[in-house]
Amino acid sequence: MELFFIFVAIVLTQNFVLHYFLGICPFLGVSDEMEAAFGMGIATTFVMTLTAIITWNINNFILEGFGVEFLEYVSFILVIASLVQLVEMFLKKYVPELYQTLGIYLPLITTNCAVMGLALFMVLRDYNFVQSAIFGFGAGVGFTLALIIMAGIRSELMEDAIPEPFRGTGITLLTAGLLALAFMGFSGLVPV
């Protein structure tokens, strides 16, 4: 049950994008097209899940084993950067269309603070291995969910007559804010 709570919490009540406001760059950058948003979500989920699994091992066995926990930032970034490289190679080979669509945002997963935040939260909250894996996967699902909702709203907005000063980034940021407010409605759903 506790694992389920962790999952629901990170997807809905404590969504990385809409609760912690982490990973806003890809959230705003890739959310204008449904297909790209979904692809970005999947790629990020993949990176996040693997990051959670690998960083947990590194933190528990290597960093704590040698007593050098202060290296967590550096080593976590190393993990994330390598994973992103891996995803990039994978996509370029097997899904070149998505690779073209994501463009610059793909290597930017490296600097997606939601991924780094995930690794640091995990350590902070003292999650065990299974909890970490669920947490990482849930964070990715939550990120994908936020991206897809945003992409849906933005594709609707494209048809609307938006007042001149709000066009472009303005309306996007407003939408993101309202979406975050809406997600506050989930608070209290699970005891975390």
């Binding site: 590194i58 290597i62 960093l63 040698f66 007593g67 050098v68 202060f70 290296l71 550096v74 080593s75 190393l78 993990v79 390598s82 490289q85 891996l86 190679m89 994978f90 370029k92 080979k93 070149p96």
Partner: peptide, 29 residues
């Protein structure tokens, strides 16, 4: 501590470098 830190990071870097190098040959377009 300094030596251990340096050794840890070097080890990790080499590990990931090897992994990526392997992936590069496998996933080459």
């Amino acid at each position: 501590t300094v030596i251990i830190s340096a050794a840890t990071m070097t080890g990790l870097s080499l590990l990931f470098a090897a992994l990526l190098g392997f992936a590069h040959t496998k996933l080459k377009v």
